[in-house]
Design a protein around this nucleic acid. Structure first.
Lengths: 160, 160
DNA sequence: GTTGTTGCAAATTGTTTGCACTGGT
DNA sequence: ACCAGTGCAAACAATTTGCAACAAC
């Protein structure tokens, strides 16, 4: 079917095209569901859960089946076009794998995913490797905590 | 029924008694399933997933129902007697809340949970608070990576 | 034309819930 | 005695899988 995108920003469309080219180079197929998933992720600035991607894809192209979204996300993640981050609760967040690697924080209050500096855990990683022989994979899982706005609303830091 | 524990180490039994006393002080009930869960966790040095606790409790006292284990884990967690850590994949690991707070690493290869120094992320937490306004909760989620043995077996450190 | 991908629906897994009864205090 | 906790089974949500038709290359 390949319904036309409702309204794709130029940047988003460029990102999709770039991903398509990358897939082409890798001898991988660019199909309707994959394009739909890529478009949805390209139009989002933040990260989306699998369920949110399913919903967004449904709005984008109703003909794409849920299972296909899951399979597309898995395939695109394996191909490195899509990046996935595990949030504490059991959900996984997806985003286009653009640019430099960065870490993620997950607000346990509002669920927001915030991008953090990529070198944030470099020293910790080194310390872990030396002291515990543990090879840290900092990007794989989000750091849990409370984001600025939630922290501000819950903790009256200095009420006076 | 309250089947007698197969073989409880003195330390484990003491830990269960301590938890029982704590519950008693809080006017909370010490029931068969809760005792079973506590005993199972006390006899384990490491962390157990909910499913593993269910299995272990079944071996400990077949009369305890799955749902009761979940409810006991939730109640004991809320009461602070049991500590839970979210592993990246969507599973949660449980352990007795003993002694000092510490962090956790989760081996994405073998699934092992390793204890890490409690102050490991202190500087990172401070940096996050200052730079991003993000209040890190270091104990809530395990750091993902590869444990020593898995790293050794997968990476031929110095192939020659 | 070949092979991977999709749509579908059913299976699967892990956790939760409603309700009557049991058991702890 | 009172009420929280339990056992049970059924509900539940989210993800996965087998298979036949289809589409990308």
């Amino acid at each position: 079917m390949s319904a036309p995108p409702p309204e794709a920003s130029p940047a988003a469309r460029a990102a999709v095209e770039g991903a398509a080219t990358l897939l082409r180079q890798r001898r991988e197929r660019m199909t309707g569901p994959r394009r739909a998933v890529l478009s949805v992720l390209a139009q989002e600035t933040g990260h989306l859960s699998a369920d949110e991607v399913v919903s967004a894809v449904a709005a984008y192209d109703a003909g794409v089946h849920r299972a296909s979204v899951y399979r597309a996300l898995e395939a695109l993640s394996r191909l490195g076009v899509v990046q996935h981050v595990h949030l504490g609760h059991g959900s996984t967040a997806y985003a286009l794998a653009e640019g430099r690697p960065h870490l993620h924080g997950h607000c346990s209050s509002c669920g927001a995913v915030v991008d953090l500096a990529g070198d944030l855990l470099d020293e910790v990683a080194e310390r872990l490797r030396l002291e515990a022989g543990f090879a840290l994979d900092p990007t794989h899982v989000a750091l849990s905590g409370t984001c600025r706005s939630c922290a501000a609303s819950s903790v009256p830091t200095s009420p006076g």
